[in-house]
Design a protein around this nucleic acid. Structure first.
Length: 209
DNA sequence: CAGCAGATGCGCT
DNA sequence: GCGCATCTGCTGA
């Protein structure tokens, strides 16, 4: 059993998304599953900023959809994409200044049985949360969880500190699935984790030229 | 293994 | 309408 589990503090997340991203590697997201808690240790994340980041949902200003990203740190930003998937972010920086860290992949460390039931397509346990939408599926996150506070022990979704990842184990590269801002290596992952998602080449291939 | 098309809904131009 | 911070299953080597 774990002895002392510490929740992250608002202060730790009140920093630039690039700093927060590296801090979040190794941390654990936890929800209440049907048969006990389900926990995922984060091994791959991406930093997104605001008006100066063309790849960010906040690049063109505040809208009802991205509103949570403009709020205080420590809240969950969930959005719907590609007609059938959800992606989850942890809001950072300060109230009024948009910034967030996309959760791209993790290792299921608690409630593996429940996670398997939610992801029947996974061919092995390391694939359970190997991808941003796979991760939200394992945690059961959807638009209903948009805006929940992660730093409250009574919250349905909680964020715990993990063993810090040594800097030499943190690798960086361009963000996945974005065609702009390729010069910003704001995707970070734990080098030795098998749960890091497969790196695809930059932009998605378009339909016929 | 790699590569790709289809699924599928919503926000914004 | 178009374009998505995607996943899965099918194809061919």
């Amino acid at each position: 059993m774990e002895l002392t589990r510490r929740m992250l503090t608002e202060q730790e997340l009140a920093v630039d998304p690039v700093v927060a991203a590296k801090l979040l590697l190794g941390c654990v997201m936890e929800v209440d599953g049907p048969e006990g808690p389900i926990g995922v240790r984060l091994v791959e994340v991406e930093a997104y900023r605001g008006g100066d980041d063309p790849a960010s949902h906040c690049y063109r200003g505040r809208t009802p959809r991205n509103d949570v990203m403009f709020g205080p740190p420590g809240f969950l930003y969930v959005y719907f994409v590609y007609g059938m998937h959800y992606c989850a972010n942890i809001v950072c920086l300060t109230d009024g200044v948009p910034g967030a860290v996309l959760l791209r992949a993790g290792e299921v460390v608690t409630g593996v049985e429940s996670a398997r039931l939610r992801r029947r397509a996974a061919r092995s346990d390391v694939e359970l949360a190997k991808g941003p939408a796979k991760l939200t599926t394992v945690l059961g996150l959807s638009r209903e969880n948009n805006g929940v506070h992660l730093l409250d022990p009574a919250s349905p979704v909680r964020l715990f500190a993990g063993d810090p990842v040594p800097p030499e184990q943190i690798h960086a590269g361009p963000r996945v699935g974005v065609a702009t801002a390729m010069d910003r290596p704001w995707r970070f992952w734990v080098d030795d984790s098998p749960a890091v998602s497969t790196c695809r080449r930059g932009g998605r291939r378009r339909t016929r030229p």
